[in-house]
Structure formats: structure tokens, C-alpha cells
Computed example of a mutant assay.
Amino acid sequence: MTRVIIVDDDLFVRTTLASELGARPDLVVRGTYQSGTDAVAALPVDRPHVALVDVVMPDPDGPETTRLLRATSPETQVLALTSLTDPQAASAMLQAGALGFLPKDLAPEAIAHAVQSARHGLAVLGGAGTAMVERRNRVALAELLSPTERQILSLIRQGRTTEQIASEVYLSPSTVKYHVTALMAKLGATNRVTLAVRAVELGLL
């Protein structure tokens, strides 16, 4: 069970995300907080695997909240919640220790996959977050993909079915499905079409 906390000064965002993620059997929302200070104070009790942190908040802001969370609980991974495409904000969050970005309007299923990926230290870029990351960060993401994942991405772009991909990469169809799900989580995609688009946008193909 992956433990999650949500840090956002917008009550609607907090309650909506908590409801959507809390309905999943593999996730538990341990707390929702309107400030980074409150979230950090509750870390010993919540012990979250992943923290979803709004980029723009009153003092402390997103980057400072991320620094505090990571300093107090290094095992907690941080994903930035954003509706912005500000490169400076993106850079500040990455420098503070965030593992990736998620747009607030991303589909709940994609957010859930992203949270599970982040728990295991995998970088996540969702939606507008792709445009916020500098070239060096895109290269870092590419390095997280295995040769098999790259091959599967290429075959997905070519429109191959799961069975066709399995035959070409010498894996079972179920294993291919596992890799596809993992890739969608890493790139913030919701289906194979958006997965191929994300891969091209990030220069992975």
C-alpha cells in the first residue's frame, strides 16, 4: 500500500485528489495539508512514500516545502502539482528535490500510476510538465529507460499490438503489458497514443 500526502492551499484540489486517490485499493491518503509547514510537522505520523506538492503556495512555497520534506524525510518522493508552464518554477522544484511534475487536471488513473512510479524513484513528467523541463532533464529521463522499454516505445509508435510486440522483444504479452503500464506512468500518459506522443515530445524516439 503506497502512502500519499497532498499539500495544496486550494481546498478543492486537496479534497478532489484525496477522494480520487483514496478510492484506489493500492493507495492510501494519509493526510491533506494547506501548507508545507503543516505537512512537515505531520511527517512522523504520516510516513508518506510520495508527497504531491503544489508549486505555487504562500510561504513556504512549493520549492521550499519540497526542500523541507526531503530534508526531514529523505525516503519521501515529491511530485509537483502544477497548472503552470513556468521554466523557473520547474527548475526550482527540481533543484529542491522534486522527482517530476503532474498537471492538476491529469486523469486520476495517470496520477495514480505516476505516484506508484515515484515511490520507486522513477522520474515522472505529465502533461504540461514536459514543456517545463530543460534538455538536460529530458536526457536524465531517457537514461531511466531500459533498452527493452525503448524498443517497446518504438514498436508502440509503429502501431504494433501487444502480441506483436511480445513476439519481437521475446517477452510474454503480460510482461509487455506491465512495461507499457510502467512507461505510461513514467511519461504521464493515459493510453498508447499519448504515450507515443510523449515519447516524441521528450526526444525519446
Rank of each mutant, 00 (worst) to 15 (best):
T181R: 05
S91P: 00
Q77F: 00
M57F: 08
E109W: 01
E75F: 12
L187C: 11
E201C: 00
L69Y: 08
A18I: 15
F101M: 04
R14H: 07
S73V: 03
P44I: 04
L183E: 15
D86P: 12
M93Y: 08
T82H: 08
L187R: 11
A51Q: 10
A23V: 05
E20T: 03
G127Y: 01
P48T: 11
V180P: 01
R14V: 04
D26F: 04
E75L: 15
A71T: 11
V193Y: 05
R157C: 03
E109I: 04
R24G: 00
A110E: 10
A140M: 08
V169R: 02
V193D: 06
P63V: 12
I6D: 11
Y170V: 14
Y33D: 01
M184A: 07
D54V: 06
V29Y: 09
M57S: 12
T85E: 14
G159Y: 06
A196K: 07
S35L: 02
R30M: 12
V115S: 03
M1Q: 08
R136M: 03
G62M: 11
Y170E: 15
V139W: 05
A89F: 10
V176R: 00
V197Y: 04
R136A: 07
T16W: 10
G203S: 00
L106Q: 11
T15D: 07
R30G: 10
T190H: 05
E149Q: 15
D9N: 14
L122A: 09
M57V: 07
V28F: 10
A131R: 11
D61K: 12
M184F: 02
T194F: 05
H179Y: 15
D8S: 06
V176W: 01
E168I: 06
T148K: 01
V133A: 07
A89H: 12
A196W: 06
L69C: 02
D59K: 01
G127L: 05
T37E: 13
L106S: 14
P63S: 12
S167H: 13
A39H: 12
P44M: 04
L187D: 14
L141H: 06
Q158R: 09
E75K: 15
L11T: 11
L94G: 09
Q95H: 02
G97Q: 05
I111Y: 00
E163C: 00
S172F: 09
V55A: 13
V176F: 00
R160L: 15
V4T: 11
D61H: 11
Q151S: 08
L94S: 09
T148S: 03
Q116I: 02
L155N: 08
E149V: 01
T82S: 15
T175A: 13
V124C: 04
T190D: 03
V4E: 14
P58R: 08
R67L: 09
L171P: 08
H49I: 01
T161D: 09
A80W: 08
E64G: 02
L52V: 01
S73H: 10
V4P: 04
S83F: 02
T181C: 01
L171G: 12
M93T: 09
D46V: 08
